[in-house]
Design a binder for these strands. Structure first.
Lengths: 146, 146
DNA sequence: GTCTTTCTTTATAATCTTTATAAATAGTGT
DNA sequence: ACACTATTTATAAAGATTATAAAGAAAGAC
């Protein structure tokens, strides 16, 4: 199924006139297969084996291209570096403040919030972002055991 | 009324054993009076006149102290630098993707989301974050006029 | 298949934000 | 006013991201 996602992504790139290079292919493939919301550097390191000469700039450039086309979302938390998430279906993130783990979860409709916000602020609202913060199961258990 | 907020904030600092220096006073005062969600550099520049010798590190250090005490929230969006928001009542942000303007708006309860997330992921959820993105009134009008 | 054009990659340096360090300075309670 | 300790300052360092220019590779035309 993730192969289908990858193929769709590649088609979508072709449709917008973006060239498909081996590096782009590999970055997309890694993102689709990754459940871990990697940083640019994670991706760079992960592909070092396959592309020993690849530049960090290439990773950043292509992540920007993917973001502009809408294939990838950039997540910015408190920590220093952005994380990147392949856009599949709408989901939100639960983030552990102790170990940094990120877990996806679904929630039906926050459209109402968009409508209210639009009404109150006069904005034309396109999308929104939401996360919940706390301690994941492992970390809460560790804390309870002192 | 913002004087009251400032006094409360200073009291709250004293209560936690944090010393009140002229720099801290000024940074808090600026944050309370500012509706613009400034960056650390904005604050630094704004106080240059009053404190010609103040170091950037002082601004960062104190913003961290304020954040740890809970007086200030750090907002990280896609752009390079964090913004800082004096915590008053719970509110959310609408962010213009064209001009960067940030407008506050209130929304009753997203507690339900926290509960669901907690149930689905096993997290102990402490808090959440939400923003809506779009075009502010000025920018949408400009776009319609071609 | 080859050519040509244009986009992309690479390597490197530069920029910008944020943090670390150590010495000098200033709050706070007594 | 004194002493203790936190804070500020100045500076340097770290880390992430972007800019630049030359070399290399996609994609379509022939």
């Amino acid at each position: 199924m993730s192969e289908m996602q990858l193929r769709d992504a590649l088609d979508s790139l072709k449709g917008t006139g973006v060239r498909i290079t081996p590096q782009r292919h590999a970055i997309l493939e890694f993102l689709v297969g990754s459940m871990s919301h990697p940083t640019a550097d994670d991706i760079y390191k992960a592909l070092e084996g396959k592309f020993p000469n690849m530049s960090v700039a290439t990773v950043y450039n292509n992540l920007r291209v993917f973001r502009e086309v809408g294939l990838v979302k950039e997540l910015t938390y408190g920590d220093s570096s952005s994380r990147f998430d392949f856009v599949t279906t709408d989901h939100y993130h639960a983030i552990c403040q102790d170990c940094g783990k990120i877990v996806d979860f679904h929630y039906p409709g926050l459209d109402e919030v968009e409508h209210l916000a639009s009404h109150v602020t006069g904005f034309k609202v396109n999308n929104h972002r939401m996360e919940v913060y706390g301690s994941c199961q492992d970390c809460s258990e560790k804390k309870e055991a002192h």
